Amino acid sequence: MGLLGTHHVAIIASDYARSRHFYTEVLGLRVLAEHFRAERQSWKLDLGLPDGTQVELFSFPDPPSRPSRPEACGLRHLAWRVADVAASKAALEAAGVSVEPLRVDEFTGRRFTFFADPDGLPLELYETGV
C-alpha cells in the first residue's frame, strides 16, 4: 500500500468564525487557503502545520452533534507533537483554554495533556521534544 504519512484531518465546526479563530489564533495553524462553497453554503479552510500535515476546517448548515464522551466509537482524539508540553499548556491556558493536568504515558514515559476545541473535539498535546 505504501502509506507515507497523514496528509490532513477534516473537522466540521458548528460556528465557523469561532473555530477559525481557535485554530488560527489560539493554536497558531497557518492559513493555506480559504474558500466559500456557495452550492453547499459551506466554508473550507485549509490550515498547515510545520511538518506539512494539514487540517481542513469546514462549516455546514446545522451539522449534527457527535458524541465524544463517554468514549464513543470512532475517532477518539487528534494529537499534536510539541517540544515542551508544559509550555504549550501554559500558552493555551493564557488564551483562556481549559487544559487537563499533565500526565505521563505509562509506556513511553512522555508527557501529554488534553483539551478541547470549541465544539468539544478532544485534542491532545504529546511531548516529543524537538
Rank of each mutant, 00 (worst) to 15 (best):
V9N: 02
L57H: 02
E34N: 09
C73H: 12
E34K: 05
T24R: 09
L92T: 06
G48N: 00
G48C: 07
S98F: 02
L4I: 12
A83L: 04
L49Y: 06
G96Y: 02
H35T: 14
D62N: 12
L4T: 15
L92M: 13
V99Q: 07
V99I: 09
F114S: 04
A91M: 04
I11E: 02
L92P: 11
R66G: 03
P101I: 08
L29R: 04
G28F: 01
E34S: 12
R69W: 06
L3A: 15
P70M: 14
T6V: 15
E100C: 03
A13E: 06
E56K: 13
V9G: 00
F115I: 13
F58G: 02
P61Q: 14
G120T: 01
P122V: 07
D62F: 10
L102A: 05
A13I: 01
L57F: 07
E56F: 12
V82S: 10
A87C: 05
Q41L: 09
A95K: 15
L102K: 06
A116W: 01
P63Q: 09
L47I: 00
E34H: 09
L92E: 12
D46L: 08
M1T: 08
E39G: 04
L92C: 13
T6A: 11
L32K: 12
L75V: 14
V9K: 00
A87Y: 12
R110E: 11
G129H: 08
G129Q: 06
A10N: 07
T128W: 15
P122A: 07
H7G: 04
L121W: 00
G109H: 06
R66H: 09
H8R: 13
L125R: 03
A72R: 10
P50N: 10
T128S: 04
R103D: 13
T53L: 03
E71F: 03
L49N: 12
G52N: 04
T24V: 08
Y23G: 10
V82M: 08
V26Q: 06
V97Q: 13
T53F: 03
T6R: 05
I12D: 02
V9Y: 00
R18D: 02
G120F: 01
H77Y: 07
T6Y: 06
Y126N: 11
T113L: 14
A94R: 15
G52Q: 04
E71D: 11
L102I: 14
R20Y: 06
R111H: 13
H7D: 14
A116H: 11
A38K: 03
T24Q: 09
E127Y: 01
A83P: 02
R111K: 09
F112M: 12
E127H: 03
G74A: 09
G120Y: 00
A33I: 00
G120W: 00
S19L: 11
S19Y: 11
L29S: 05
T24C: 05
L102S: 05
T24M: 02
R110K: 11
R18K: 14
G109F: 08
G52M: 04
D51R: 10
R30W: 00
A94M: 11
G129D: 09
T128Q: 14
